[in-house]
Amino acid sequence: MQRLNLDREKAKQYIEEVEEGRRRWVHFFYGVSWDESSHYDVIVNLEQMNVDNAASALCNMAQLPDFQMTPASERAMKDLWLAAKARLLLAQDARTARCSFTVRAENGVVNVSYLPRDAKVGVYVPQVLEKLEGLKELRHTISTTNILWIQENFDPNSEIFGQITEIADKWNAAIELLRMSPVEEEVQKEGDRVELEFEQVPQEPVYTGGIEDDVIEPEPKDDGGLKETLNELIKSGRSGGGRSVGESPRKLLDSIDRSVTYSLIVIGNVFLSKGEATRKRMVRELQSLLMDNLKVPVVTSEELKSQYLFGAKDLPKLITFLILTVIFYTLVFTHQEPILNFLRAETWLEKGLAAIAVGLFVPTIAYIYGSVTGLILKLIKME
């Protein structure tokens, strides 16, 4: 109040306006509401506790092992830092400053995607980012949109891989891979994390003549085909990056970058450790969660082909609807006079029948014509 020279009412109004602006800012960039309680680990009600006691409690709580940095959280922070530095370099360089880039980082690998209209400028991306500290590998893709593919085990030789890449080619889209780690891996990761958190302070190291340097590094764990599939996407120019998350739907949702524009989300083989009935229920719940929060079409691998690709089952439908369309239009154009006479009914009964006929005919022909159009567009691979 003193700094801005405002009275109490104007100061209150100013604070409300600032908070509203920040709320809109957070929602615009991250697609979340900052007053959603599920986004916070602790919420303190100051009506039941004064500020000093609340601050003391929070400071003590912050010292607990649960709130300490872990290798996973440190890696996530490094990825965010690396992506932010890449965006800054691209924005500062005159050659790339006017372009819109989507930048993500994962373990030192930076993925940059841009629109086809910026293809000429995209060639400068490697030059701009070549001196980026912490950069291990750079991947840049031309795309107009993104497809998010969620799965537990990826296989570049699978049918669904071919289907998704076919759609990506149609839409000029980048494919982002998101692997849901099985429960067993999650348990192991959690165990490793707890062990690290409670590890004792190391003693003064003893010189061993370099023997510890000769220890053979353990083989990397199975990544569920993530790297192999990602390499295939890189070769085809459709890579949108890839990473692994836990099997929890909430963790998966939190890991999705809200600033990225997705046109489609595909849920493949997930929750494989569950029974068939449980797995189907959990997939439906995940599908609803993603649709409600991201406002993007979400389909399962079984629904993908029927909704977006022309298959053998669509051919009889196309032929049937084409025949019906021809019959309807032929009848209309060859019987125009009787139809007009019928519509120019004079009695209330005839007018009612005409209204019912129009009410039935128009939606029917619209459905048939729309079905024919949709199937033809699928056949010629257009949207």
Rank of each mutant, 00 (worst) to 15 (best):
D292L: 01
D292P: 05
N293P: 01
N293G: 10
N293E: 06
N293T: 11
L294G: 09
K295G: 03
K295P: 05
K295Q: 06
K295W: 04
V296H: 07
V296T: 10
P297F: 07
V298Y: 03
V298C: 00
V298D: 04
V299S: 10
V299D: 02
V299Y: 10
S301D: 15
S301T: 13
S301G: 11
E303Q: 13
E303T: 05
K305P: 04
S306M: 10
S306H: 05
Y308G: 08
L309M: 12
L309V: 13
L309P: 04
A312V: 10
A312Y: 03
K313H: 05
K313I: 02
K313S: 13
D314R: 06
L315R: 00
L315Y: 04
P316K: 01
P316V: 00
P316H: 08
K317Q: 10
K317H: 02
K317W: 05
K317V: 09
L318A: 09
T320Q: 15
T320R: 14
T320G: 10
F321I: 12
F321E: 10
F321V: 12
L322R: 02
L324E: 12
L324I: 12
L324T: 08
T325M: 09
I327D: 12
I327Y: 01
Y329G: 02
T330W: 09
T330Y: 11
T330G: 06
L331Y: 00
L331N: 08
L331S: 00
L331I: 06
V332T: 14
V332Q: 08
T334A: 14
T334Q: 09
H335F: 14
H335W: 04
H335L: 00
Q336W: 12
P338C: 04
I339M: 11
L340C: 06
L340D: 11
N341L: 11
F342R: 07
F342T: 06
L343A: 04
L343K: 04
L343S: 01
R344D: 15
R344L: 06
R344V: 03
E346F: 07
T347M: 00
T347F: 06
L349Y: 15
E350N: 15
K351Q: 15
K351Y: 13
